[in-house]
Amino acid sequence: MKNSYLEISHVGIEFPTDDKPFRALQAVDISIAKGEFISLIGHSGCGKSTVLNIVAGLYEATEGGVILEGKEVDKPGPDRAVVFQNHALLPWLTVYQNVELAVKRVFKKTKSKAEMHDWIEHNLSLVHMDHALHKLPGEISGGMKQRVGIARCLAMQPKVLLMDEPFGALDALTRAHLQDSLMEIQSQLGNTVIMITHDVDEAVLLSDRIVMMTNGPSATVGEILEVKLARPRDRLALAEDPEFIHYRQQVLRFLYEKQKNPAAAQEVKAEVNQSTDAQQAMSQDDDSAAKHEAA
């Protein structure tokens, strides 16, 4: 990449365990242009989340580093907003207050009270949540919570938007809605996005490039697939599009042939076939368990 905006450079990480350190990532190199939409895909436990957490600054890489706009990333910050898998809204604050918490941190010095108020409402209307400003997260559905989580991140005007399986916990219909919303917002705002996903269709539909990761331990970048589908993309038209099917095949081939993982393969297959919620929940458990062990 010539004009690299975000450079993930030779990143490796080891987690201390009781006997010998566990090496999760090895020599991960990704370079991302401004406004690019990148998906990370790979089997459960391959360290996708770890890459994202290193970019976010939540984990510190053992070697290598992340450079954003010429500056090295050494701690978490609002310029790299994270959309968490399980929304991570503060349950005691209303939808509005959750976004307000973030906006106040970022724009306290540059925006007036009225401007902040308008900005919060603007971002919530971007994700179509302006009808429920004063509801608590406990009173709205899972998809709505995730919308608010996205609005909270958008409102921070981050340099990079990091999404950790943002739609993983949602049912297929809600997920499709949110994917469409995300594409619409992306076309308006042109954010730089890194998204982790398990869902091959989602990766092809949304991304400019798909980064496929090899299996852990010592996971690294396997292949990078450039998706040259024209935007705006329409999911119904693309479903039959030979180019789309071709990209989809390539990702599947990587996951099933080149990185065949008997334990995890079943899960990904289930997800590719628009998994049921139960399987989805199971694979997420595995994933978070893996993260937990790693941490």
Binding site: G57, L58, G77, P78, A88, R105
Partner: peptide, 21 residues
Amino acid sequence: DRDLINVSRVLQLPSLVHVRS
């Protein structure tokens, strides 16, 4: 919840705000 702590870290909430909110 770890996620909430991470939210606080991403937002770089000052200690007092972190404790209070």
